[in-house]
Design a protein around this nucleic acid. Sequence first.
DNA 1: ACAAAAGTGTTGGTGTTACACCCATGT
DNA 2: ACATGGGTGTAACACCAACACTTTTGT
Lengths: 231, 231
Amino acid sequence: MTNPPHDLNSFDRPSVTVDVVIFSLAMAQNDLRVLLVQRSREPYIGLWSLPGGFVHVNESLEAAAARQLAAKTGLESVYIEQLFTFGEPQRDPRRHVITVAYSALVPYSIIEEPAPNAPLQWFSVYDRPKLAFDHADIVDYALQRLRYKLEYTSVGFELLPNEFTLSSLQQAYEIVLAEKLDKRNFRRKILSADIIQETGQKSRSGEGRPAKLYRYQDNAVAEIKARRLFP
Amino acid sequence: MTNPPHDLNSFDRPSVTVDVVIFSLAMAQNDLRVLLVQRSREPYIGLWSLPGGFVHVNESLEAAAARQLAAKTGLESVYIEQLFTFGEPQRDPRRHVITVAYSALVPYSIIEEPAPNAPLQWFSVYDRPKLAFDHADIVDYALQRLRYKLEYTSVGFELLPNEFTLSSLQQAYEIVLAEKLDKRNFRRKILSADIIQETGQKSRSGEGRPAKLYRYQDNAVAEIKARRLFP
DNA sequence: ACAAAAGTGTTGGTGTTACACCCATGT
DNA sequence: ACATGGGTGTAACACCAACACTTTTGT
């Protein structure tokens, strides 16, 4: 989002915003969602856009991104990562605004659903409305990057609650990658990567055999071995 | 480089620069070099720093980076890539300056050596002077990224002239990765990637058997197959 | 003829994919 | 007892790493 400043002076330098692509999973709907805000003023009034805003002076970029995230979700310590900086002069029709794009991963179902007509909604990344500015490019880029990182790092765990079953982890991977994975191969690879541990508990959610619950060993997103998780 | 503006007003928003890590190979010295400029004013006067400067209004980031590159090297159409954006408020002791770091690869020996006391010099990335601001971090990051991309894309060709031998290509890889590679495996992998073609010519540089010359097929830096070039 | 660099194959090991059935629980 | 989802092993194949000698040229 690139709101106008309160004074409309034209400065001789571009200004800087952050925009945050906030992803979360809707496991029940088998869907990857992104949080969008509806613009209340020109330009692009009524269109949806990424949460974002100006970087304050003496505020780090990551702090600015975290501030946007906290403002929209109330969440503070979630995974957040710089993506890319978009600076085409015409990306904002009013004046030159450079935006540093961030991506955040919010654990599944941590946030309650907004009211149906709220100006803040979750949308499927696979079926989203027309976005303001170049935000569609930013979301596309973020998705591509998320998929890529899912394959060779352990970011995937950031989308799940602390304790999870291997099936739900696999489902998360399948939703993001938009493809089916082989159950046995998936389990072997995750287990052999040695990054999760059993909690000793079992989930008993409805029917079927209860599944072992696992915990991610480390909060840091580490490279998984030398090789990709799913080539 | 983050020069002060001519007026020293303190604005209420951070300003934006680009800094460019310009790499080139010194094949004869088996060295990877980076182009640095010596600062002529405070802060960090006398220290070396990356070529850089403010992004003009209505100028794209990539254009600003290309402008810096052309100003220092005279080169226009070389490989240039956005790396990361550094925005810690204290990275410039004067005021908040956000810099978008770019990396450029300049073909081997395209540029003449500057005069010995010029304020613009090539330095070995492995043995470089103390750098101003956070530029040492930026160079480290650029080197890490270059190594990484070398492994799974074809950026390596950007460091060589249009026509090259497999031995010189291997030498380029060895310099950047700072490790020896197996000749037979290297050749097999490059040739099977199907991204270079024989020119039909041979290099006859001094002693030894003349080597076939190859040309890179495509100017675009493409992913090489699904797998890394050198895992 | 010899020094120097170019060029060339094979083998063992490791990782990856594809694939089908039994197990524990709730109804 | 049956429906539901959890959990497990193996065999063929592809890719990778390690390794040494022959060829072509200049001197």
